[in-house]
């Protein structure tokens, strides 16, 4: 029943946001309280546990810090819509823009416009890739956990558990995303030479696809005794765990995932997963502080790395029992 209440609340808040945005269209220039700086948030929109937690936290934090935040989510990872929202914020002359981009490239033109309008831009979570120095200078700071660090943690876990080397697979996210590249880079940098990745396949961040892909890989490489699966997100790791269980290999194949959602931690406690690296979505406060500091004329670090934790079964149980997880 609790979930239905949540659903209703979401619809209500969605409607409220819409009307809020509608007000913002016409009147945020004069209607907004002068003492309250206006922040435009170019967001991804609800797409899963991490994103929802992250964006809710950002919105709360900015409200708490006394900002007027205009939330503008896109749909189905449509970058075009994000660019439109971004340009609209520039035209409306907001005080700062927080950008959580779906894709790392293609932002040069928009950033240049922001620079001309002297609007500072803060990228959160995913970093953007800009070639133009003028565009790059529009970005004051990047705030988010490090994907490379997460990849390194996964590699370290495998190194530690299999000092004599091992065979395994990697389940990647969709090709071309910076997250995918960064998590892979971190892994590649840290992994020992005696560990062999038999095959890397994309399972599109999807639980369901990961199960199919993993089942296929287990069939194909049965003879090579695979001992670990590094899934680049929780969703895929959960799918892989089910394929492993059905193949009767539960416990024999260690599954490492990144993100740290509640479902993954639960799976960790249940022994379906072996190691979960958090990709901490809770950095609204840090972001709000960075924006506030910059607007107050203080210097802000250009790369603010958010600390994340790693979990094994024991620490996962602790965290779940504490009930403080936001996602």
């Amino acid at each position: 029943m609790k979930n239905w209440k949540r659903a209703i609340a979401l619809v209500a808040s969605g409607a409220a946001l819409l009307s809020f945005a509608a007000c913002g269209n016409g009147g945020n220039a004069e209607g907004g309280d002068d003492s309250k700086p206006t922040i435009g948030f170019v967001a991804v929109g609800p797409e899963g546990g991490f994103r929802t937690a992250n964006e809710n936290d950002l919105q709360d934090a900015f409200k708490k810090a006394g900002f007027d935040l205009i939330y503008s989510p896109t749909q189905n990872n449509d970058q075009q819509k994000q660019i439109q929202a971004f340009n609209k914020f520039v035209n409306d002359e907001v005080d700062a823009i927080v950008l959580s981009s779906t894709e790392d490239s293609g932002w040069d033109e928009s950033l240049k416009k922001a620079k001309e309008a002297e609007i500072p831009v803060f990228t959160v979570d995913r970093d953007v890739d800009v070639t133009d120095p003028e565009a790059a200078s529009a970005i004051v700071s990047h705030i988010g956990p490090s994907n490379e660090w997460a990849g390194e943690q996964a590699a370290d876990f495998v190194n530690e558990n299999f000092p004599d080397g091992a065979n395994g697979f990697i389940l990647e996210g969709p090709a071309g995303l910076s997250v995918v590249k960064d998590r892979q880079t971190g892994w590649d940098n840290a992994i020992n030479d005696n560990v062999t990745v038999l095959e890397s396949q994309s399972a599109n961040w999807s639980t369901d696809e990961a199960k199919t892909v993993t089942a296929g890989l287990l069939d194909k490489h049965k003879s090579e005794n695979p001992q670990f699966i590094f899934a680049q997100n929780d969703e895929m790791g959960l799918g892989a765990a089910q394929a492993v269980e059905e193949a009767g290999l539960k416990g024999q194949v260690k599954i490492i995932t990144i993100d740290g959602t509640e479902a993954a931690l639960q799976a960790l406690v249940d022994g379906d997963l072996s190691f979960v690296i958090e990709y901490n979505p809770i950095f609204g406060e840090q972001t709000a502080t960075a924006v506030k500091d910059y607007l107050d004329g203080k210097t802000v670090e250009s790369d603010i790395v958010i600390d994340s934790q790693t979990f094994d079964a024991a620490s996962a149980k602790e965290a779940l029992d504490a009930g403080t997880r936001a996602y």
């Binding site: 609800p46 797409e47 899963g48 189905n76 599109n204 961040w205 999807s206 639980t207 369901d208 696809e209 199960k211 969703e235 959960l238 799918g239 089910q242 479902a263």
Partner: peptide
Amino acid sequence: SVMRVDVVK
């Protein structure tokens, strides 16, 4: 199949 819905995927 995985007892889990992925609203996007």
